[in-house]
Design a binder for these strands. Structure first.
Length: 553
RNA sequence: GCGCCCAUAGCUCAAUGGAUAGAGCACCUGCCUUCUAAGCAGGUGGUUGCAGGUUCGAGUCCUGCUGGGCGUGCCA
């Protein structure tokens, strides 16, 4: 409904633009309707008059008046008016709002979804933590930012691949293998210390014990670290995936860094950069002339020991991504890796790739505050709170919601005590309570034999024309636009913001207006449908965030 | 030093360049014989870090400061 109505009105605007602007039409800023921020200014609003006034050198207020004339009488509009210095405000007809409710009920779980990007393919790469230990709370934010972005893209029609890129090569993996080997040796009574900068967590001991169970003493002889790395990486990847499942995150594909070395992709990337004249050798290493592209220093691609640095396979990985034919690439990573982003972009530019489709969501750091104190997120010293601990203690609903609620771009203080509270202060329950309440009303309606079919057949619309009812209907009307806006901007937190607004409006309505009234059967029927509409939207919104919508609380 | 990000109510955070900057928490005052009080209604609380600039219009864009987070490695 939303897009149909706005398209219609924008059409009128376009025609007006053509007539009023004449020759200036081509240069004029485009203008369209969007939801009014303040409902006292109508339902939809546009600043078209401001945009056009400049090129015409005319008074925007006067222009607004002309545009309003053209809008009035439109079947979707109850009232159009010019306001302030030149705003154009529109109130929607009650028929549009009623149709919205009908659509929400009929489309049910599809309401708010769209086919705008049907046929397009997107990849969201996220988490991508190296399998050197279990995921800790620092990874949770990226997991939720990525997963929710993926859900939003799906909701607007993209075919989405959720991918986990993991580093199973390189120095850190060697350190992992050596750490496990040391613990393994200790199990046989050998006095072997962990390597310096080794992994000190207890999980290393468990993995060593698992190696012993699986392989006995057969790995003692050779002393090779590689088998330990492989064993540990397998174990840890499956632990990571299990933990992510607890958060309701599932990946479609994993991508191994080692495969890029083995299939020659890394080599080829280096060769092509060299063929572009973008590299040189110095001190036994191969350097990328990134300063030519504005970097403040050149970067090493291949170390003097012949091993590539971390950035080189990352460039190769992105070439693979491009080759796989996605229309949209989304990379989620911690902001502490932002310098890596620049180097990959520089290399891709040198190689002739366009960066338009490549989006990075660099989520800012998280700190957790508990009992008035900040608690440690992670440390190489083996003391950390894991993702699993967090989900076990808070539950997936709360964990997901708290992270989804905030813009990924703002540093976040996670209020553990609030998250832990099962009360009205906790916004998750505030939203879920809306759903539970609607279900409760629905059940009562069933007991009383009141129609709660998902359609508006035979409904008297009069009871839905009240101010409060209208406000709710309008919020339902906006929902598809919230989803679209959040998806296109990759700003998932717009959804929680909307849902909280809807919840507040609904709870207020519930308090002020009895839905099922024995003395008003017509009104009860109509309001019941409205409540069902709210229920659908709340359920759909929570489902985008993968938060449960309980029927009872 | 240089680069990226941030600075909004006491606290945690919102606000496609638009109208009187909004929520939640905290604090104060009321509201349960009714479909769930995990709720509602109202109140207190702001020079949007500072100084300039662009614009019809700036919390939002630009410049310079101040203060913070993170980078700045032949680690990832």
């Amino acid at each position: 409904m939303y897009f149909d109505v706005v398209d219609e009105l924008n059409q009128v605007l376009q025609e007006a633009a053509r007539d009023i602007l004449g020759d200036a039409f081509d240069q004029a800023e485009p203008a369209g309707f969007s939801p009014a921020r303040d409902l006292s200014h109508g339902d939809l609003t546009t600043t078209a008059a401001f945009n056009w006034a400049k090129s015409l050198k005319r008074n925007p207020r006067e222009l607004a008046g002309e545009i309003v004339m053209r809008l009035s009488g439109h079947p979707s509009i109850e009232k159009a008016s010019a306001a302030g210095p030149g705003f154009i405000n529109v109130s929607l007809s009650s028929q549009v709002l009623l149709n919205t409710l009908g659509a929400a009920l009929k489309q049910d779980s599809a309401y708010g979804r769209s086919a705008k990007y049907a046929g397009k393919k997107a990849m969201v790469e996220f988490v991508s933590a190296n399998p050197t230990g279990p995921l800790h709370v620092g990874h949770v934010r990226g997991a939720i930012v990525g997963d929710t972005a993926a859900s939003l893209l799906e909701a607007v029609g993209y075919e989405v691949t959720r991918e986990y890129y993991y580093n199973d090569a390189g120095v850190q993996m060697e350190m992992l293998g050596r750490s496990v080997r040391a613990r393994y040796w200790q199990l046989f009574g050998l006095d072997e210390a962990l390597p310096e900068n080794g992994y000190k967590g207890d999980y290393i001991r468990y993995i060593a014990a698992a190696v012993k169970t699986a392989k006995g003493d057969s790995l003692l002889e050779s002393g090779e670290w590689r088998p330990f790395t492989e064993f540990a990486a397998d174990v840890l990847m499956s632990v990571i995936m299990d933990d992510l499942r607890k958060l309701r995150v599932r990946f479609d594909t994993t991508f191994s860094e080692r495969s890029l070395h083995e299939n020659g992709s890394v080599r080829q990337t280096i060769d092509e950069l060299t063929a572009q004249g973008a590299t040189y050798e110095q001190d036994g290493a191969l350097w990328l002339k990134s300063t030519d592209q504005g970097d403040d220093k050149d970067r090493v691609l291949v170390k003097s020991d012949g091993e590539p640095t971390y950035v080189t396979p990352d460039i190769a990985y992105h070439r693979e991504k491009y080759a796989r034919g996605f229309d949209l690439l989304v990379n989620v990573m911690g902001h502490d890796h932002h310098s890596q982003v620049e180097r990959v972009k520089i290399a891709l530019t040198i190689l002739g790739y366009r960066l338009n489709a490549l989006n990075y969501l660099l989520n800012q750091m998280v700190s957790i505050e508990r009992g008035g104190e900040k608690i440690k997120l992670s440390t190489r010293e083996g003391q950390f709170m894991t993702l699993a601990d967090m989900v076990d203690e808070l539950g997936a609903d709360v964990t997901r919601y708290f992270f989804a609620q905030r813009s990924y771009n703002s540093q976040m203080i996670f209020d553990w005590d609030l998250a832990k509270r099962q009360s009205m202060d906790n916004p998750v329950y505030y939203l879920q309570y809306v759903h539970a309440r609607t279900c409760s009303i629905e059940q009562k309606a069933e007991e009383r034999g009141i129609d709660r079919a998902p359609n508006l057949d035979g409904i008297d619309p009069a009871p839905l024309r009240g101010e409060r009812e209208r406000e709710l209907l309008l919020k339902l009307f906006f929902y598809p636009n919230v989803v679209m806006d959040a998806a296109e901007r990759l700003e998932a937190h717009l959804v929680p913001a909307y849902l909280e607004d809807l919840a507040k409006t609904f709870h207020g309505y519930y308090q002020a207006q009895r839905v099922l009234d024995q003395d008003d059967p017509e009104g009860s029927r109509a309001r019941m449908k409205l409540v069902l509409g709210v229920q659908r939207v709340m359920r759909n919104g929570l489902s985008l965030l993968k938060v449960d919508a309980p029927e009872r609380m």
